[in-house]
Nucleic acid binder design. Structure first.
Length: 870
DNA sequence: GCGGACTGCTTACCT
DNA sequence: ACAGGTAAGCAGTCCGCG
C-alpha cells in the first residue's frame, strides 16, 4: 500500500515509507487478494441491470455481466441453456453432411432444418442450420458452403438476439436461471400512451407495449472509476508506444463516483515533490511508491473493485500501456485485469468505457450534444460541456515536480469522470437508453457508430420475428442501384433542393419547417429495403415520384414500422413529457434524455440506407426518401405561391416566408397534411433576415435581438480570431436594428471596425494566435498525395522539427511572405506576416455581410478595395 | 517562363 | 464508415503568348 499523504502533510522526502521490494530479481509476492477479481456468480439474485454479454473462451459459453444496484457489483452468469454458435445455408442438410471439411471439423456439432421468412422474396424458406461448438469456427466453416447467411454476426450478439435480451434492462437469476424482470407500467401511463397513439393496427399496438418499458424503466445509478496515467517521456512531443511500454508509469490518478480521489506517484530520485501549486487538488490521497510494480498492482486492485472503468483514450493508450508495462515488469497474465482485444481494451470483470471513442461518435456529437464540441480532445470536450478543463502546465509531464504532476494528472481523471456526471449523470443515462434501443452491450455501444447501432437493432427484430437476415449482395441484386443523378460529382443519387435566396434584408420572416421530414416520409410511404421495388406485380403502380421505383402495398416495411414507432413515441409522448410542468424535474429530465436518444436513431434512419458500408444498404430506398422530400417541398412552395405567400428561401425541409398572414399559414399547414400526409409547422420567426444571396448563407435576427448566423465565413472555425471578433461586433450591432433606416449606423460601424483591423494589422498589434488559421487535419500528413493544402504544409514543417502531428489534430498556421506562404504559429514571427493576405481575408469575410446589406466596399470605405490603402 | 482559365481537392458548413 | 448540397480557397494543370 502506498503511503497516504493528505494535503497538509506532504513532507514527502522525510515521511516516505521505504518499500523495499525484491528489485534485484524483479519478482514480487502478490498477495492472495490480488488474484481475486471479486467476481460473484450467484444462484439467486435480486433485479440486476444487464450490461454486457461476452464469450467466455475457457468455459465455451456466453457470459452475461449484470450490475447489481444493491451492492454496485458485477455479477456473472454463464449460459446454461446449451446455446451454441451457428449459421445458415440454403444447401440441403444431406448435401452439407457430404462436406467432410464441415462434418469432420472438431468444432462441428450438428445440422438441422429451420424455417425462416425471407423478406426479399416475401415467402417462407427452409434453411439448413449448421451448428458449431465454438464461435471462431463459424468464420472458417462458412467458407465451405456456397452461400452462408448470418455467419458474420458476432456470437455474443447472436446470443442476445436468440435469448431476446435487452441490454440496459432488468434481469434476475432464479435458481440459476436468467429471467427477465417485468417492468410495471403505471396504469395511467399505459392508458395515456394508448390514447395518444390511438392505433387500430394490432401489430403496432403490440410494438408500443413492447417498447414502452425501455423508456419507462429508471436507469441504474452506476458506480464507476475514472483512470488516467502519465508516462515518462524522454523527448518532447513524442507519444510513448503502449505495445513497447518502454518507459516508466510515473503517475496514476483514480477518481471514483463514490468520492474516491487518489493519485499514485512513482518516486524518482531526481524529481522533488516541490511546492503545492495553485491547482493542487484538495482532499486527495497522494501516495508515493518506490516500486512501479507495486504501484501498478495497487491500480489493478482498485480497477477490480469497480464495476465500470472510465478512461479517455484508454483503448489505445492507458490500458494497453498498463497491460504491456505490467508484462514487461514480470506480472503474470492472470494478475492483470485487462484484456487487449482488437476492438479495444476490455476488462476481465467489469466494463471499460473509453469516452474518447464515445464522444468521437458523430451521432453523439451532432444529435446528442448539438455540435457543442468540435474537436475530440479531453480539453475541448470538457471545456464545451463542463465549462472547465485541463491544468495548464509549462513543461512536459515528466519534467514536472511531483506536486504539479499530481495536480495535472488528477484533473484529467476528474474531467473524465465528470464527463459522465454532469447534468445528473446525463451521459450514463443516455448510454443505458441507447443500449436498450440498439440491443448492444455497454462496451459495444460505446465503441461503435450509429450505423452499427441501427444494424444491431434491426437484426434483433429480424431474429425475433424469425425473418432471415438478408445478405447485402441479395439486396443489391434484387433492388439495384440508384436511378437519379447527384448534383455533386461522385455521389450516388440526388439529394435535397435548395432555393436560391435574393440578396437583401427582409423584415418579418416566418420560417416553416416539415417536422422530421425524412423519418416521416419513411413512415408515411412505407419505405424499407424490402418494400421498395418489392416482388409483387400489383404494387408496381404505387410509384415513388421523380423515380421509377415503386413501393409495397401488401406488407409493412420493417424500417417504416420502427422509424415510425420511434418517431411517434418521440413526438407524441416524450417531447411533450419533457416539457410537462406537472411532472417532477428529474422525471422531465429523464424524458428529455429519452427523446434525445430516439432522435439519434430517427435522424440516422435515412442515411444508413445510402451508406454502402451498411449491411442493409439499399440505394433505391435512400433515393426514394430524398425524391419524396424534393416532391414535398416543391409542391408546397407551389401551393404557397398559389395562395399568395412570398417564398424567399428554402433548404431541404424549410420555407422562409415574407410577411405571411396567419390564415395563409394555417391554410398551408392544412394543405400539407391533407395532400402530402406530412406535418409542416412554424419553426421560428425573425424580426428580419439578411440574405447574402448565396445558398446556406444568411443572418436571422429574432425579435429579442439575438442572432442566428448560418454559413457565413465569419463564423467558421478556421477564420482567424481577430477577423471573427470584428465580424461578431458587427453582428451585435445588427441585433439592435429595428428598421431599414437604422442600417446607416451599422454601415458606420463596419467602416470603423474594418479600418481598426487594418491599422492593427499594419502596426503588427496582433498576436500570432489571433492571426492563426485553425484547420483540422483529417488524414495523416503522408496521406495527402493529390495536393498539399496549406495546413498540411504547416503540419509538415512542425513534423520536421520533431512535433508529434497526426490526424485529428488542429493545425494553427499564419500566412507569411515566404516561399510556401505559410508557417505554423509555433515557428512563425509576427514580423513575417503577409499583411495583404489578411486584408483580403477581412474583405471577403465582410463581403458576405455587405452583400446582404446591399452595399459595396467602395461605398462604405470610399475606395473600391481595401488594398488601396497600401 | 509567366499568368489567366479551368478543374479538382480539401475543409467547413447547412439540412 | 448515416446522407447529399453549397461556398470558399488553394493546388495543380493546360494553354496561349511570336
Amino acid at each position: 500500500m502506498g503511503q497516504q499523504l493528505t494535503l497538509d502533510s506532504f513532507m514527502v522526502e522525510s515521511r516516505r515509507k521505504k518499500r523495499r521490494t525484491s528489485r534485484r530479481t524483479g519478482k514480487l509476492k502478490i498477495a492472495k487478494k490480488d488474484l481475486d477479481l471479486g467476481i460473484v456468480e450467484a444462484k439467486n439474485t435480486g433485479p440486476c441491470y444487464l450490461l454486457s454479454v461476452v464469450y467466455d473462451g475457457k468455459k465455451r459459453k456466453a457470459l452475461v455481466k449484470l450490475y447489481d444496484p444493491q451492492t454496485h457489483n458485477i455479477i456473472f452468469w454463464h449460459d446454461n441453456t446449451g446455446h451454441l454458435p451457428y449459421f445458415l445455408t440454403d444447401l440441403p442438410p444431406d448435401k452439407v453432411q457430404e462436406i467432410d471439411k464441415i462434418v469432420n471439423h472438431p468444432s462441428f456439432d450438428h445440422v438441422e432444418v429451420v424455417e425462416k421468412y425471407d423478406l426479399l422474396k416475401d415467402t417462407k424458406v427452409h434453411m439448413t442450420k449448421i451448428v458449431m461448438k465454438e464461435p471462431r469456427s463459424v468464420g472458417t466453416v462458412r467458407e465451405y458452403v456456397p452461400k452462408a447467411w448470418e455467419a458474420h454476426i458476432k456470437y455474443f450478439n447472436n446470443y442476445i438476439y436468440d435469448m431476446r435480451l435487452i441490454p440496459g434492462m432488468l434481469y434476475k437469476i432464479e435458481n440459476g436461471i436468467l429471467k427477465e424482470v417485468k417492468v410495471e407500467i403505471p396504469k395511467e401511463i399505459a392508458k395515456h400512451v394508448e390514447k395518444l397513439f390511438d392505433v387500430e393496427d394490432y401489430e403496432f399496438k403490440e410494438l408500443v407495449k413492447e417498447w414502452l418499458p425501455l423508456f419507462q424503466l429508471p436507469p441504474p445509478k452506476l458506480k464507476r472509476l475514472a483512470l488516467d496515467i502519465e508516462v515518462y517521456t524522454a523527448t518532447r512531443n513524442r507519444i510513448p508506444d503502449p505495445r513497447e511500454a518502454e518507459e516508466k508509469i510515473i503517475s496514476v490518478s483514480l477518481v471514483g463516483s463514490d468520492g474516491l480521489k487518489r493519485v499514485l506517484l512513482l518516486h524518482r530520485k531526481d524529481i522533488e515533490f516541490g511546492h503545492k501549486p495553485l491547482e493542487y487538488p484538495e482532499n486527495v490521497e497522494i501516495e508515493i511508491f518506490d516500486s512501479e510494480r507495486q504501484l501498478i498492482a495497487e491500480v489493478f486492485t482498485v480497477i477490480n473493485s469497480y464495476p465500470i472503468l472510465l478512461t479517455f483514450n484508454g483503448d489505445n493508450f492507458d490500458l494497453p500501456y498498463l497491460y504491456y508495462r505490467a508484462k514487461r515488469l514480470g506480472f503474470n497474465e492472470k494478475h492483470i485485469p485487462i484484456i487487449i482485444a482488437e476492438e479495444g481494451a476490455r476488462l476481465k470483470k467489469g466494463i471499460h468505457i473509453d469516452l474518447y471513442r464515445f464522444f468521437n461518435n458523430k451521432a453523439i456529437q451532432v444529435y446528442a450534444f448539438g455540435g457543442r464540441y468540435k474537436e475530440f480532445t479531453l480539453d475541448a470536450i470538457a471545456s464545451a460541456l463542463l465549462g472547465y478543463s485541463k491544468v495548464v502546465i509549462e513543461a512536459v509531464a515528466s519534467d514536472l515536480m511531483l506536486s504539479e504532476l499530481a495536480s495535472y494528472n488528477f484533473r484529467d481523471a476528474q474531467l473524465t469522470l465528470n464527463l459522465t456526471t454532469f447534468n445528473d449523470d446525463l451521459v450514463m443515462k443516455l448510454i443505458i437508453l441507447l443500449m436498450r434501443i440498439s440491443r448492444l452491450s455497454m462496451d459495444e455501444l460505446t465503441r461503435h457508430a450509429v450505423s452499427h447501432w441501427i444494424k444491431n437493432m434491426l437484426y434483433w427484430i429480424h431474429r425475433k420475428n424469425n425473418y432471415l437476415i438478408p445478405l447485402a449482395e441479395d439486396i443489391m441484386a434484387e433492388k439495384g442501384e440508384a436511378v437519379t443523378e447527384a448534383v455533386i460529382k461522385g455521389k450516388k443519387y440526388a439529394g435535397a433542393i435548395v432555393v436560391k435566396p435574393p440578396a437583401g434584408v427582409y423584415f418579418n420572416v416566418v420560417v416553416m419547417d416539415f417536422a422530421s421530414l425524412y423519418p416521416s416520409i419513411i413512415k408515411k410511404w412505407n419505405l424499407s429495403y424490402e418494400t421498395v421495388n418489392c416482388s409483387h406485380s400489383d404494387c408496381r403502380s404505387n410509384v415513388i415520384p421523380e423515380t421509377k421505383h415503386w413501393v409495397c402495398r401488401r406488407r409493412k416495411g420493417i424500417t417504416a414500422l420502427i422509424t415510425g414507432l420511434l418517431r411517434d413515441f418521440r413526438v407524441k409522448i416524450y417531447k411533450k413529457a419533457a416539457k410537462n410542468k406537472a411532472l417532477g424535474e428529474s422525471e422531465r429530465a429523464w424524458y428529455d434524455i429519452v427523446q434525445q436518444a430516439m432522435k439519434v436513431f430517427i435522424n440516422a434512419s435515412y442515411g444508413v440506407f445510402g451508406a454502402s458500408t451498411f449491411p442493409l444498404y439499399c440505394p433505391p430506398a435512400a433515393e426514394s426518401v430524398t425524391a419524396i422530400g424534393r416532391y414535398a417541398i416543391k409542391s408546397t412552395i407551389s401551393k404557397a405561391q398559389e395562395i399568395g405567400l412570398k417564398v424567399l428561401y428554402g433548404d431541404t425541409d424549410s420555407l422562409f416566408l415574407h410577411n405571411p398572414p396567419e390564415d395563409k399559414i394555417k391554410e398551408l399547414e392544412r394543405w400539407v397534411e391533407e395532400e402530402l400526409g406530412l406535418e409542416i409547422e412554424v419553426d421560428k420567426v425573425y424580426r428580419y433576415v439578411a440574405f447574402s444571396g448565396r445558398k446556406k448563407n444568411y443572418i436571422g435576427i429574432y425579435p429579442d435581438g439575438s442572432v442566428d448566423v448560418k454559413g457565413l465565413v465569419g463564423k467558421k472555425r478556421n477564420t482567424p480570431e481577430f477577423v471573427k471578433k470584428a465580424f461578431y461586433s458587427v453582428l451585435e450591432a445588427l441585433g439592435k436594428v429595428k428598421s431599414h433606416e437604422e442600417f446607416e449606423k451599422v454601415k458606420n460601424l463596419i467602416r470603423e471596425i474594418v479600418k481598426e483591423s487594418y491599422n492593427k494589422l499594419r502596426n503588427r498589434e496582433l498576436t500570432l494566435d489571433e492571426l492563426a488559421f485553425k484547420v483540422f487535419l483529417s488524414k495523416n500528413v503522408e496521406e495527402y498525395v493529390k495536393t498539399v493544402p496549406q495546413h498540411v504544409r504547416a503540419a509538415k514543417m512542425l513534423k520536421e522539427v520533431g512535433f508529434d502531428v497526426r490526424k485529428g489534430d488542429v493545425i494553427m498556421f499564419v500566412k507569411v511572405r515566404s516561399k510556401y506562404g505559410v508557417k505554423p504559429v509555433q515557428l512563425a514571427k509576427i514580423s513575417e506576416i503577409d499583411v495583404n493576405k489578411y486584408v483580403e481575408n477581412i474583405e471577403s469575410t465582410f463581403e458576405q455581410l455587405l452583400d446582404a446589406l446591399n452595399i459595396e466596399f467602395k461605398e462604405i470605405m470610399g475606395i473600391s478595395k481595401l488594398e488601396a490603402f497600401f
